[in-house]
Design a protein around this nucleic acid. Structure first.
Lengths: 253, 253
DNA sequence: ACCTGAACACCGTTCAAGT
DNA sequence: ACCTGAACACCGTTCAAGT
């Protein structure tokens, strides 16, 4: 029973949950828009005239959603609000994205693309002759990125928000990152920086560690485990070093 | 601006997302209830007679929610559906739980209580004379529990579903688990099973690793990282062993 | 003291009708 | 070809009214 998994749930955006004393005013529906449409829009409107066809709605929706996520977290995103910000009607997005999940998946693809770019900048700074250092740098870059872009991290990671199964973009980018990691481990083993043994296990363990660190920070677990927010990043780096030191200690040579 | 963080969002339960060919029929509102009310209900109704006062609504709601979570995942839970299953009106739950988050927090507390009980059973089997083995057993118990109770794991871990800040029950139980872990590490260091150094860092790193492993499994990341579902548990155990072996290799003595 | 049920302000999604 | 706007079936939450 229960077909795929394309249903979501939601609740009032600001259902005045707490009976705010200033409720009444319904707040403007259309946030300031246009300001960002500087010069790169295909077939720009006559100027001021709101065209019936948006021209670039997919991209505008992804951008609006990215903004929304930044403001309220990914679960709070609503397609209707994204439509409002893009200046279109509530039904319009569905011509471009069949479901809310599809919209968020597009956003996740954009976020992962940006992360991969950062990964590559990071690796460019560590010499290929020191693969263990590259492995470590990869881990640190991941955690750092997650801490600095918690919402991007969340869209990418949460299975109920996105549809990895059907996103080639996501799988392709993730595959590249994975291959990069595997290469570091293989090279480090070849050089005797890491102990021999299943390289895949090392990749998966390392990934689990950095994913766990990132999630503990983002999911607000760190404070409960005695790590103040201010020390999150430093603690994560020390944790990675603790793990790597253990591997090194067992290395041949 | 933006007050606390007690707002949630949701979407149609089964808004016929995909235009199912058998749509029409609206499906019965009240699922079979009563079947489970065997004999333990305080002031049982005359039998068959539906009393105006439920008698034990809080507990019934928590149980219904636990069921719902099991069936559809925690984000899909709706207070209205929980109310339906408990056989009360849509407004009734709000006399017992001020918000959806409060209901889910009560569920999380129940789930964490059960996990802690399991933890204690596990530790009972490993001698206090081998604290490193206890540390390892703790990690394995965590991952195993998460894999076998993915939904319980999710309610407890997801910050947007629950309100840890204001739940003494959650914080108390978590504190106990943390203290148990810290004790293992301290004892293991004292015995030279673990290298000297900040014990807290070892606790946090270990926690991040097992949390990461659990989340990778539950968030469906393992398949993307080359770990088939069937091997999730075994891989997680090997990962824990890899980490522990690294610590051991650096131990004094 | 606890529950009902209508009401309100939101949602995701569909679809005939417009441009 | 793309967008509008009403419609439908859901939500969380409130609150006067019942018992």
């Amino acid at each position: 029973m229960k077909p795929q998994a394309s249903r979501t749930r939601s609740a009032p955006k600001a259902s005045r949950g707490t009976p705010s004393r200033i409720a009444a005013k319904p707040a403007p529906r259309h946030l300031p828009r246009g300001k960002k449409r500087s010069g790169k829009s295909a077939r720009a409107p006559k100027a001021g005239a709101k065209p019936y066809h948006h021209g670039n709605l997919s991209a505008a929706l992804v951008a609006a959603t990215l903004e929304l996520i930044e403001e309220q977290g990914p679960e709070q995103v609503s397609v209707r609000e994204a439509a409002r910000r893009a200046g279109v009607s509530s039904g319009a997005p569905f011509r471009h994205f069949p479901t809310r999940v599809a919209l968020l998946t597009a956003v996740a693809a954009e976020a992962l693309r940006r992360f991969e770019a950062e990964i590559e900048r990071t690796l460019a700074e560590v010499p290929a002759t020191d693969p263990l250092a590259r492995f470590r740098a990869l881990g640190i870059a991941f955690v750092r990125w997650a801490l600095h872009n918690p919402t991007h991290f969340q869209v990418i990671s949460s299975p109920h928000l996105t549809d990895w199964e059907h996103s080639d973009a996501l799988n392709r980018d993730n595959g590249r990152i994975q291959a990069l990691t595997a290469q570091c481990v293989a090279d480090a083993q070849a050089q005797g920086q890491l102990p021999p043994g299943d390289p895949h296990l090392t990749v998966v363990t390392g990934r689990a560690l950095v994913y766990g660190l990132a999630r503990m920070a983002v999911d607000r677990h760190f404070p409960r485990w005695g790590v103040p927010d201010a020390e999150a990043e430093a603690t994560a780096e020390r944790a990675i070093d603790l793990f790597v030191a253990g591997l090194e200690a067992r290395a041949g040579k």
